[in-house]
Design a protein around this nucleic acid. Structure first.
Lengths: 214, 214
DNA sequence: TAGCATACTGAACGATTGTTCAGGAGGCTG
DNA sequence: CAGCCTCCTGAACAATCGTTCAGTATGCTA
C-alpha cells in the first residue's frame, strides 16, 4: 500500500482522513476544517465532492462496508476450518481489521450509534460467525444452539469486546486490551466459560420455561 | 416520587434534565440552552451553579455513582442468594436500573467513553458480580474461574448487553432489546452457553498454553 | 434600617460550526 | 481561438456554541 497522501486524489485523501478522524474523535466532534487540514485541502472541496458533511459520512460508511465485505469474502478459503476452535474467531477478525486499527475504532462507534450502517456491519459479522459455527458443528465440535441467531450475536459481542470497549478497558487495566498479555487473558477466560460452562451439575437449570412478568 | 419539576430547587431540576438529555443525546450534542429550557431556567444559571458545562457533567456523574452505590448497598440483604442462578443477575441489575431507564442509557455512554467515571461504575458492577459469583461458588453451583476478574468483566458485558447495545439491537431486531420476548431470548441464550458451554467433548481444548505471537 | 450574600435573568461577546459563493487554474472539445 | 467542464480555493454568511457581565429581586444578618 502506498499510504502516501500525496499519491492519492483529493477525494480519496478526504475519505481516508475522515475515516481516521471520525474513528478517533467521533462524527460530531470532527469538523470539516480538521478533515480538510488532515487531507491537505479546503473545507469547500469536501462540500464540492460529497455535498455535505452527512454525504461524506455516507461515503465513508460505504467504504467501511465494502472493506469488511472484502474481508468476509477473503476469509476462509472454501472449507478448511482452523485446527483449534479458539484460533478461528481470532483469525477471522484479524482478517477483517488487519492492517488498519482505525477500522476497529470506527466500528466501535458504529455499533454504539446503532444506525442502519451498523446493522449492515453486524449482519456481515453474523455471516462470519454463522459460517464458523456451522464448520464446528459439522466437525462435531460444537453443540447446536437452540437460538442460533442470539448465540451468534452474543459470541460476536464477546469476541469483539476488546475492540468495542477499548477506552473503558484501557482505563480499567491501564493497558490496551489488544496487548498480547491482556488479549490472551480475554480469550482464555472466554473459552474457559465457553468450553465447559461456568456452572456445576448441581446448579438449578434454565429450562426455558416462562418467566414471570415484571 | 414527586417527579414534578416545580417541586424541586432549580439546581436539582438542572441536574435531572442534564442526566436525561446527556443520556438521550450525549454530552456534546446537548447544549446548555436545551438543558435550561428543559429545567425551566436560563443557561446563565447553570454556569452560576456548576461553574461550567464540565462542572455540570461532574455533578451528574457524581449523582450517578451515588445512585448506583445506593443500589449496590441495597441489593442482596446479608447472604440470601436467589433460588436459581439466572434470576440473580437480572434482579441485581433491575435493582440498580430500576425505575429510571435514563440511567441505563447514561451508563451506556459512560462505558463507551471510558473515562474515570466509567471505571468507577465498572468497579461497582464488578463488586456485584463478584458477590454473586462468590455466593454461587459457596453453594457449589459455580466452578471457580482461573481468572476471576476477567470472567466477572465478561459476565457484566454479557448481562448488560441489551443496555449497552440498545440502539443497535433495536435497529437489528426492530424491537427494544429489553422487551419481555427479546430479553427472554437473550437470557435463555446466555445461560444455554454458560450452563454446559458451546463445545462438545470432542473439541480440542484451550489449555492456556503460550500462543504464538503475531 | 442598612448591608451583604445568594438566586436568577436577558443581552451580548468571541469562537467555531456547516455551508455558500464568486472566481481562478487547467484540460478537453468544438 | 472560444466555450465548457472539473477541480479547487479564500472569503464570507448565518447559526449555534459556552461563557461573561451588568443588574434585579429576595432574604438573612447586624
Amino acid at each position: 500500500m502506498s499510504g502516501n497522501l500525496d499519491e492519492l486524489t483529493a477525494e480519496a485523501r478526504i475519505r481516508r482522513a475522515a475515516l481516521r478522524l471520525f474513528a478517533q474523535r467521533g462524527y460530531d466532534a470532527t469538523s470539516l476544517r480538521a478533515i480538510a487540514r488532515a487531507a491537505g485541502t479546503s473545507p469547500a472541496l469536501i462540500i464540492h465532492h460529497f455535498g455535505s458533511k452527512e454525504g461524506l459520512r455516507d461515503a465513508v460508511n460505504a467504504d467501511v462496508i465494502a472493506t469488511i465485505d472484502a474481508g468476509v469474502q477473503a476469509y476462509m478459503p472454501p472449507d478448511e476450518p482452523a485446527e483449534r476452535p479458539y484460533e478461528a474467531p481470532e483469525a477471522s477478525f484479524r482478517e477483517v481489521f488487519g492492517g488498519q486499527p482505525e477500522l476497529g475504532a470506527y466500528i466501535r462507534r458504529l455499533f454504539f450509534d446503532g444506525d442502519e450502517t451498523a446493522v449492515a456491519v453486524l449482519r456481515q459479522f453474523m455471516v462470519i460467525s454463522r459460517r464458523l459455527s456451522a464448520a464446528f458443528e459439522q466437525r462435531g465440535w460444537m453443540r447446536e444452539a437452540a437460538d442460533q441467531e442470539m448465540r451468534d450475536l452474543q459470541l460476536i459481542i464477546l469476541e469483539l469486546g476488546p475492540v468495542l470497549f477499548s477506552p473503558l478497558l484501557v482505563a480499567y487495566f491501564e493497558q490496551p486490551p489488544l496487548s498480547p498479555e491482556l488479549h490472551h487473558r480475554w480469550v482464555a477466560s472466554e473459552f474457559d466459560m465457553l468450553m465447559d460452562g461456568i456452572f456445576t451439575d448441581d446448579a438449578p437449570r434454565f429450562d426455558g420455561a416462562e418467566r414471570k412478568a415484571t
